[in-house]
Amino acid sequence: MAIAKKAIVWGLFAAGGTVTAFVVPALITLFLLVATGNVPDGLQFDQFHAFASSWLGKACLFIVLFLSVWHAAHRLRVVAHDFGIRKDALIASAVYTVAAIGTVLAAFYLLTIG
């Protein structure tokens, strides 16, 4: 007996859940504000671009994106199970592959900003 590898994905899921619960609602609100033309000070394009160009900014954005996508992946796997879909290995590889691609894309696009 040993601790199952589920510990890894659960760890990402839990961290992602914490981050998304706090950060994502704020991000959505800000996104809607910006989309309706009420851009708050500090979120002007130039300012935000500068933030995303700094290594600290990239790191913050990467953590939020990376954890959110892994949280979502694991949540989908659990929901599929709850809905009675009994192909856990297949579902797990599918959702985690998407999460892995999302992680790579997030890193790639963040690195192109600058």
């Binding site: 007996m1 040993a2 199952a4 589920k6 510990a7 659990v78």
Partner: peptide, 15 residues
């Protein structure tokens, strides 16, 4: 104990 509790069919199955 965690080797048993956190194995497959242990804590992770709880949703």
């Amino acid at each position: 104990r965690l080797n048993i509790l956190a194995d497959h069919d242990g804590v992770w199955d709880c949703s």
